[in-house]
Simulated assay, not measured.
Amino acid sequence: MAATLCQVMGFVLSLLGMGGIIAATGMDQWATEDLFDNVVTAVYSYSGLWRSCVRQSSGFTECRPYFTILGLPALLQAVRALMIVGIVLGAIGCLIAIFSLKCLKMGNMEDNIKATMTLASGIMLLLAGVCGIAGVSAFANLIVQSFRFTTYADGGFSMYGGGGVGGLTGSLTPRYTFGAALFVGWIGGAVLFIGGIMLCLACRGMSSDTKQRYDGMAYKAASHPTIYKSDTRSRPAYNDSYKVQSVDGRQSNQRFDYV
């Protein structure tokens, strides 16, 4: 019962973590403009892994995707790859975890096979959570470096190069801080990691420790071989007839035949 509960809880947490990583990958608020001491408040810019957006004070928002990958930093491309690998591993792990649930009957599948599938799905979900956390942390490190060396003067250091994020900035280079997608990715990766650990722990309780035993009797051969000899002694020949003796001991000629 405890193994089944641990497996179900791990599966539910894995689904929630997968939803967090997928949502974080598609969000645009990975890096948001720092409005503290910003002289320009009419324009608010933010960017994600796939495009950068500018929102004006009137409410109009314009987004521009990154049309090429050649002008982007290698770290940004690595973050994309980590998030995609995390999503693929998590999806495969969740699919395997569905078929390995102990509360579901899948034909004549034994518990040992389900335990092995649960362990495999737990390892995949662990790796998916690590990939998600590593990708978000790498992007956060990029924001920290950009925030330290970026000024509001013209020609300052920009997070994606001298031209600003997506080429949407003007003469002033804004500074960027952590966006909402980073926190969603951190939480989703952590929940996915915990779900993978719970599935790995549930594997131990699902495998049967007691093996089937067969009761039997051991037979031991004799240490000395037994030799059986045939009886070669002569046996008296019996006649079918029997002579009756008289009272005085003399043998009578009278015979009695027995049939």
Rank of each mutant, 00 (worst) to 15 (best):
Q145N: 06
K102G: 13
F256M: 05
V244H: 03
I22M: 12
Y66V: 12
R148S: 02
F99K: 04
I227D: 03
Y219M: 13
V85W: 06
A218L: 15
C203H: 11
C63D: 14
I197F: 03
L89E: 04
W186C: 07
A91C: 07
I96W: 01
G26N: 00
A128R: 02
T41M: 04
W50H: 13
G185S: 01
F147S: 07
C200W: 15
C103I: 14
T210D: 13
G196N: 05
S230M: 09
M159I: 07
I227A: 08
T68Q: 10
R51N: 09
I92N: 04
D215Q: 12
M159H: 04
Q56R: 11
S241T: 07
I92C: 01
S137H: 01
L95Q: 06
A74Q: 12
V43Y: 00
M124Y: 07
V247K: 11
G196A: 03
G107V: 04
N38S: 09
S241I: 07
Q56N: 10
G107P: 06
T173S: 09
V244F: 07
Q77R: 11
S52E: 05
A153N: 11
C63A: 05
K102R: 13
A31T: 06
M206D: 07
A115G: 08
V79W: 02
K102N: 10
L13F: 10
I113A: 10
T177A: 07
N253R: 10
Y228H: 12
S100A: 09
A115I: 08
S171L: 14
R235H: 06
A91T: 10
D28A: 12
P65Q: 10
Q254R: 03
T232E: 12
V40W: 15
A190D: 10
I84C: 05
S252Q: 10
A3F: 08
V79L: 01
A3G: 03
G205H: 08
I143M: 01
G170N: 13
Q145E: 14
G249T: 02
N141L: 12
A97N: 04
K243F: 09
K114C: 02
N253A: 13
S223K: 12
G166C: 10
M124Q: 01
Y228E: 14
L101Q: 12
V12E: 09
I123Y: 03
I21K: 00
K243N: 03
L199Y: 08
A128Q: 07
E62C: 10
V8I: 14
A140L: 12
F147Y: 07
C103T: 15
F149K: 11
M106N: 14
R64S: 11
C203G: 15
E62W: 06
A218R: 13
G19L: 09
K220A: 12
C200H: 02
F256K: 06
G19Y: 06
